[in-house]
């Protein structure tokens, strides 16, 4: 896996357009998966590790996680202007679309089987996230300790619904300590 990628300068308009695309297709909370797909898989602008680190960071810093992820990616690619381009790109289509849906809500919710369409889209969006989680899981697969850390995170945050910050405060140092001596093994 390529983890030490040198990023060729990506155009600001490319960042803006990529995140416009992400914003336009982000339904039902599956946005992290969509960002990973577009930025890592399709454009190859970041490595899996950089993306996952960004996702973790985005959840620790306050604010909408998706917006933070955009800022992280944009900043990584082109500094402050890159972050601005990413955030603007992410929000510009949803800004108008959300108000449009609000104005049309009575008509839209009267369409028969609209519930099924909405649930279907939301479930598919979760599928995008599931794929991302699988990529993350694969990265730690043969190693027992990272898998334990992942399992502990799922149980603590997903099942027991403990708050993220204290959970990370305990798990992150352990996991990083484990990664420490292996720093050259993966290159």
């Amino acid at each position: 896996m390529n983890t030490e990628k040198t990023t060729a300068a990506v155009g600001l308009h490319q960042i803006f357009l990529a995140f416009c695309n992400i914003g336009a297709f982000s339904f039902g909370g599956g946005i992290s998966g969509l960002i990973h797909r577009e930025i890592v898989h399709n454009k190859k602008w970041l490595s899996d590790t950089e993306m996952l680190a960004g996702l973790a960071l985005a959840q620790v810093v306050p604010g909408a996680n998706v917006a933070n992820t955009c800022v992280y990616v944009g900043q990584r690619l082109r500094g402050v202007p890159g972050a601005a381009a990413a955030l603007l790109g992410l929000l510009c289509i949803p800004f108008f679309a959300t108000v449009f849906v609000y104005l049309m809500w009575d008509q839209l919710s009267a369409i028969p089987m609209m519930d099924s369409v909405v649930d279907g889209v939301a479930a598919a969006a979760v599928g995008l996230n599931l794929r991302l989680a699988m990529v993350g899981a694969q990265r730690s697969f043969p190693k027992i300790f990272p898998m334990l850390v992942m399992a502990a995170t799922i149980v603590a945050v997903g099942v027991l619904r403990w708050p993220i910050i204290p959970v990370m405060a305990v798990l992150a140092p352990l996991s990083i300590a484990y990664a420490w001596p292996r720093k050259s093994a993966d290159a």
Binding site: L52, A133, G136, R139, S140, A172, S175, K183, D186
Partner: peptide, 21 residues
């Protein structure tokens, strides 16, 4: 090392997010 260490946690958080959704 920090990026490597965060990656299983991030994967776990994505899974947890799926459960929450």
């Amino acid at each position: 090392a920090v990026e490597e260490g965060l990656s299983p946690i991030a994967a776990g958080l994505v899974f947890a997010g799926i459960l929450a959704l």
